[in-house]
Amino acid sequence: MSVIVVLISFSLLIAIGFLIAFLMSVRSGQFDDKYTPSVRILLDDKKTDNNINNSNINKENS
């Protein structure tokens, strides 16, 4: 049965890992604004050339 102890401790460790990831994401402000990122991801990278920018966005919008 001791294998259960190992399994449980691993599962707990993984769960704690996810908990920490969640707490950090809250801390970094990811839950402060849940709307803007959804728009931002559709806008193009800041560094791309302007013309490429235009055509990409037109495609997305159409």
Binding site: I8, L12, L19, L23, V26, F31
Partner: peptide, 25 residues
């Protein structure tokens, strides 16, 4: 306000984590 909201997220996260694991254990 946003500070309180963050702490609420922390609390929900921790309580949910504990709840799930305790259920299993």
């Amino acid at each position: 306000d946003s500070k309180y909201l963050r702490s609420l997220y922390y609390k929900v996260g921790i309580a949910g984590f504990s709840f799930g694991n305790i259920m299993m254990l």
